[in-house]
Design a protein around this nucleic acid. Sequence first.
DNA 1: GCATCAAATTGACCGGAGTCGTTTTTTATT
DNA 2: AATAAAAAACGACTCCGGTCAATTTGATGC
Lengths: 193, 193
Amino acid sequence: MEAAITLFGERGYENTTIAALAEAAGVGKGTIYSYFRSKNEILLAFCEEELAYIHEEIRRKLTPEASLQDKMLLLFMSEFNYVTKNKEFGRTLMREMMFPRELMVQHSRKIEDQFIGMFVRIFKEAQEQGQLRRDVEMIMLCGHFYGIYMIALSAWYSGRLQSEDDVRESLKMMFEQALTGLMPKDGQRHESA
Amino acid sequence: MEAAITLFGERGYENTTIAALAEAAGVGKGTIYSYFRSKNEILLAFCEEELAYIHEEIRRKLTPEASLQDKMLLLFMSEFNYVTKNKEFGRTLMREMMFPRELMVQHSRKIEDQFIGMFVRIFKEAQEQGQLRRDVEMIMLCGHFYGIYMIALSAWYSGRLQSEDDVRESLKMMFEQALTGLMPKDGQRHESA
DNA sequence: GCATCAAATTGACCGGAGTCGTTTTTTATT
DNA sequence: AATAAAAAACGACTCCGGTCAATTTGATGC
């Protein structure tokens, strides 16, 4: 793991070979595979540690009196900055997180659960302040917000959103829309030309 | 492409080697790489064709008088069934679609645009019937619905949602919530115990 | 028919992920 | 200390995606 932190940081994930990792760790190539089942598993283990740290940091930055939107924005933009510090690294991570192979499911779940923990805390506060419906399951709320984040991230990877600011603006707008709903308010209905 | 359709169908994407593809097509390995830049590019090209066909089929099934939710459900469940017919094939496709490498961006955009075309048609109808706000950009609407689908699909890949029915139910519920909004209606506010 | 050049084709080759039979180290037993 | 058994470490090897220099094909002009 120490070798991974060093080498992934230095040259990125794809440019780090297992052989190099083994050498840096002072062990044989085969030994690595008796602790990790694949190169991607090393990445996830690596991120599990890193993200736990980052989440702790986010938690400290979160001011309880901020609006739900602002909290979400802070959380996801921190995440975004971490994931996209190295574009190719983040891509591999997100691919493995969102669409894990059978072997990786436990890992990606563990990381997801870190997220869910933070979300739930924030959502409960928001419910108490009357900013969020109480009749929507926590896991669904997570889904709504994370779904929006995923789409924004994906749009960034495909070049539809180009800058960090584009991403922030999109998130902000979509959070607002998700909260108020996509249906017309009754008054606005039937204004068709 | 013909060889790809045959072999991907027979043994799946990962179990098809470029060498096998070349042999089946009756050409050398190198020749393939003068038409496609990578194995994944073959996959995307393959899906571009397939999906165009499937989308045409969906379009035929869509009854104009159905509710927005029902239309979306039909569309995404068709998609879901296609993508998950072969789990590993779908995983690779979704990974490449959502988090494309620089080289693949054009391809994944083309496929996305097929989707967006369908969405826009449906959304316009829904707006005319007063089922959808008019002050939200089309691309944002796409984002909301596709985001929900992505999350559901991801939950299926990570085992949180186990059956097709679980996925359908989740989609249904989340569409409803996205339409009505996650904020409390004014009446319900401040009912905290 | 022949020469020339561009385009297309090819498969030997390369690098890296992952496997496996062998060797080394550790632990347990007498 | 000697021996046996279990665990850990190892790196040569396999497999496959992708590259590239060499070769073949085909078009054009004389």
